[in-house]
């Protein structure tokens, strides 16, 4: 299990990183925290990559308060997100998610941008960002662009990021004081990928529900959201089970996942109401 990398270069800043990517002739691979990429390289699931190590670019790290939104640098580490007071106050869902992600040593190096760009449908941050309605900021050869999170995840491990682009930051709306954010998971062991996970955000403007581990991408459960907006929990559970199309694997069947999604929604609603009360 020894990686076969094509080459390595350390980017000093964002523009250097863009140059490196441009010069990699399509073999470039952005290396941030490396907690998924290096594992894949060791297993030779990814070979001959020209690694562009962006992990030292300090401008891409940190959480800032932009008034209506929070801006999270793509290189902000999981452990930093979990401990950040702005996150704890305005995006408690993300702080909650950190405690579910793998284990301490992984959280010490893994970055939120890496987690989103990797687009693992079983990971917490992609689903959380869907529930929060995040905007992603991307730097490419032609400058910066923004993508709404709903348009970002394309397929299994596939996003709308182009090969020569780098995800630089994420902005999320700050939670209002009466907003409820709940993350619930069923996992067989602490830190495992969840068999199913569900995020519920209750805002004055309506409900947002997203799921992880129920398909090839994180899923926004629009029908269930609509039912919850109507105040119909049973209808939301039924709609949710109807609108997701989970896969079966060695850990659980699609039927199990579909069933649990409904259970988690009920529990999340109960918890949110509890939080309100």
């Amino acid at each position: 299990m020894k990686a076969s990398a094509g080459g390595y270069a350390r980017a000093n800043d964002l523009s250097h990183a863009m140059e490196l990517l441009a010069s990699s002739k399509g073999m470039g691979r952005v290396l941030a925290g490396g907690q998924s990429l290096v594992a894949a390289m060791n297993m030779r699931l990814s070979t001959d990559d020209m690694l562009v190590d962006i992990s030292r670019i300090s401008e891409l790290s940190g959480v800032t308060d932009d008034g209506e939104t929070l801006r999270i640098g793509a290189l902000t580490k999981h452990v930093e997100i979990g401990a950040n007071p702005l996150i704890q106050t305005y995006a408690p869902l993300l702080a909650e998610a950190v405690s579910c992600i793998a284990h301490a040593a992984i959280r010490n190096r893994g970055t939120i941008g890496g987690a989103l760009a990797h687009a693992d449908p079983a990971a917490e941050f992609p689903a959380c960002m869907l529930a929060l309605g995040a905007t992603l900021h991307i730097c490419g050869p032609d400058g910066e662009r923004s993508v709404e999170i709903e348009d970002f995840f394309q397929d299994l491990f596939e996003t709308s990021l182009e090969e020569d682009e780098i995800l630089t930051a994420i902005t999320i709306p700050k939670a209002a004081t009466d907003e409820q954010q709940v993350l619930l998971e069923v996992a067989r062991r602490s830190g495992d990928y969840a068999l199913v996970g569900l995020c519920l955000v209750v805002r004055s403007t309506g409900h947002r529900i997203s799921l992880l581990s129920v398909g090839s991408t994180p899923v926004l459960a629009r029908n269930a959201m609509a039912q919850l907006d109507q105040g119909d929990v049973d209808g939301a559970v039924a709609a949710l089970r109807d609108e997701i199309d989970p896969t079966s694997d060695t850990q659980a069947s699609a039927s199990y996942r579909r069933h649990i999604a409904g259970i988690l929604l009920r529990r999340a609603v109960a918890q949110a109401i509890g939080d309100i009360a």
């Binding site: 299990m1 990398a5 390595y8 290396l31 490396g34 907690q35 290096v38 594992a39 060791n42 297993m43 690694l51 190590d53 452990v79 793998a102 284990h103 301490a104 040593a105 992984i106 010490n108 190096r109």
Partner: peptide
């Protein structure tokens, strides 16, 4: 592949998986 923790060492004051860092 980053699961077992047998390679855990300290880098810059925090624990890291030695197999998941180059």
């Amino acid at each position: 592949h980053g699961v077992c923790g047998a390679c855990t060492v300290q880098v810059d004051g925090t624990s890291v998986r030695g197999c998941l860092m180059l």
